[in-house]
Structure formats: C-alpha cells, structure tokens
Design a protein around this nucleic acid. Structure first.
Lengths: 202, 202
DNA sequence: GTCTATAGCCAGATAGAC
DNA sequence: GTCTATCTGGCTATAGAC
C-alpha cells in the first residue's frame, strides 16, 4: 500500500511538472503555437513519455486549465471566510488575482475558435465542474453586488460574469507591462478601476 | 492605356474578393485555424492563383487588416467633419462601429502571439501607416476628452487607447450574441456603457 | 514508463503546362 | 494568371526495444 502510494506520489509530482510547463507555454505562445516537442523539452523527458501521462495535446491544455481553475477556487474560498468583505470586493479580489497571474506569465490562453480543443474541454468533467463552481460563486457575488447597489442591476448578470472572465485574458495589461513604464501593481489597479467603475450604476 | 487600366481594375476586383473571404474567415476561425486551401475554395480559385496575388498566408492577413483599418479611417473622417460631436462621442462612435463589425462577423482576429505574422505586419508599411493614423486620431480625441473632463485625466492616454482597441476584439459581445437573448444593438450599448463609464473620472 | 525512431498527416508553398 | 499535381517541412501520435 505504501509502495503504491509512493509511486502515485511520484507520478503526481511528474505530472505536476508537466502541467507547470504546459501552463507557462500556453501563457507564452498560446495553444496553436505551442508544440508537444517544446513541452517535452521543457519538462526534460521524451515526447512519447508525455503521451503515457496525457492522451493528447488537447488533454495537456485541459489539465492546465483544470489546475488554474482549482487554484482560483482556492483563492475564492479564502474570501468566503471573511464576512467583512463586500460582494464587489470579493469580485475585485478574484479579478485582481487573475490579472496578477496574467502579468506573471502564468495565465494559460486558449483560443475560443479551435474546435478540437473545445471538443475535449466540453467532455472533460473535471474542467466543467470547476468552471461551473467558479461561475456559481462569481454569479452569487454578482447578484449580491447588484442588490447592494455596487453593480448596476440593469445589467444582465451573465454580461457582468463574462466581462470579468474576459478581463482575466485581456491583452491590455500585457501591453502596458511591455511598455515598461509602470509597475504591475499600478497596471492592475488601473484595469480594476476602469472595469469596476464601468459596472457601477451610472 | 485604357486596356491596362481595365486589367488593373479586374485585378483589384479579384483581390478585393480574396480579401473579403480572408476577412470573413479570419473573423470566423482566427489566423491559425484558417487554411489557405479554405480561402482558395471560398474565393473559387486555385490555391496557386492566390499566391500570384499574395506572397504568403501572412500577407493575406495583413491585407485584410489594411482594409479594415482603411474603412475605420473612413468612418473616423466622417466624424471629424461634424464639430457638434464631442471628443468622447467620436471615440464612442468609432468603438461602436468596431463592435458592429465584430457582431457582423467581419472583424478579423489576429493572435498576438504568432511571431511570423507579427514579423510580416511590422514590416508592412501600408499596415503600419494606417495603424498609426488611427492611433493618432484616437489619441487626439482621448487627450481632448481628458481635457474636457469626460475621460479621467489621471489615466495614461495609451491605456485608454489600448482599452478601446481591445474592446473591438473583446469576446464578450460575441458570447452575449451567441446566447440569443438580446439584440445586437442592446449588446453594443451595454459594452459601450460599461467601457466608457469605466474611463470616466470617479 | 522511459527512450529512439518513425509513421501518418496536413498545410504552406511551388513547378510547370496551358 | 489560372490550373493540376507535387514538394517540403513540421507536427501529432505511436511502435517497439529496454
């Protein structure tokens, strides 16, 4: 039993290293430009070994998405335990956390057009479950924020949800960072400000 | 002379048809997923004939971008002749025009990561010139709007410019449109509202 | 489970006849 | 300039030895 558990731990560590490489490469080059050869080289193992762990390139990307969603949920759970935070403050915290991830080059970017990738994702329950969980919690915060007046209640909650999701992949912070004239913190603050001011009642 | 001019006209019409197909396919599938075979099939000519008009797949995309930028400039020129419009109203008009284009499936989408494409674009003066012209006019409106108080003057003008550019490629309107619950006009109005409210002084 | 080597495929680009 | 046919390279995925 202990032996099996140990082997499983080794397996998980190896797979975690793979996902870390995939995550970084996805953030850097995007799904289409990322090659499996690059992933293998980055991890330091042979390409064929990769396919013993993950069935396809799409499965690699899905695993990266699952991990980032799981970490997002972890961050969200640290917020639900703090009743002094208002709903909009929670939303702002999550969005800011995602922006930090993006500026650190650790936000995997998936093209919405690629059909084979979408097919893999929509049949991946681990991915769908976590995505649903994130959406549910965000949605609850959104309607609460609309009820307390900090977000315009004439906006459809889905619009607000999609808008916040979109901010996590927005090119604007990356371009501002590339100009090199501002700190990451200030860039994030500006994006959060323009985003949440826009969602307020006008 | 007339003969040459006629031939040139035929050539331009054919190339215009090519660009129209490329534009639509770029909007629909993105650069990486679009294939030159598809373009040729859509235009109704052989692939080799395409390469008599454009040197590469990247050149096709660049031509599509040049045309959309040129049309954007046309729209902007209709605004500069109307002194009753405030700077922020001009910015809003241009952004709304781009959103219309996007919801009509005619906004070509280029991945910012693809390096060969970027290399072609940065050495394409027709593209760079038009991009500069758009940026200059938008920038002038932005600083004017900051001067008259309709846009927060503590925001760097580049941030505002990039934010408006980003809205033209934002996934949010497309997702909202796909839900089928709202008209294009209402979706555009919501996006413009959340965008420009966010840029106002708070 | 790891490796080397390779199969199989697809897409960008071109040759050469007309 | 247009076509058919083909080349070429790169990428996903796998075979098979260890």
């Amino acid at each position: 039993m202990a032996k099996i558990s140990f082997r499983e731990q080794v397996l998980r560590v190896r797979e975690d290293a793979i996902i870390t490489s995939v995550n970084r490469l996805l953030a850097e080059k995007g799904f289409d430009s990322m090659t499996v050869d690059e992933v293998a080289a980055d991890v330091g193992i042979a390409k064929a070994s990769l396919y013993k762990h993950f069935a396809s390139k799409e499965a690699l990307a899905a695993a990266a998405m699952v991990r980032v969603l799981a970490r997002t949920l972890e961050h969200m759970n640290t917020l639900t335990g703090r009743p002094e935070l208002t709903p909009v403050q929670c939303l702002r915290s999550v969005t800011g956390w995602a922006l930090q991830l993006q500026l650190a080059g650790e936000m995997p970017a998936l093209p919405s057009q690629n059909s084979t990738l979408r097919a893999t994702l929509v049949s991946d329950t681990a991915y769908l479950d976590r995505l649903n969980e994130v959406s549910e919690q965000m949605g609850a915060w959104i309607v609460a924020a609309q009820a307390d007046g900090s977000i315009d209640d004439t906006l459809p909650p889905e619009l607000v949800l999609y808008t916040l999701f979109a901010r996590a992949c927005d090119p604007v912070p990356g371009v501002m960072q590339a100009s090199g004239q501002h700190t990451d913190e200030r860039i994030i603050e500006w994006v959060l400000q323009t985003c949440f001011n826009g969602l307020r009642k006008s």
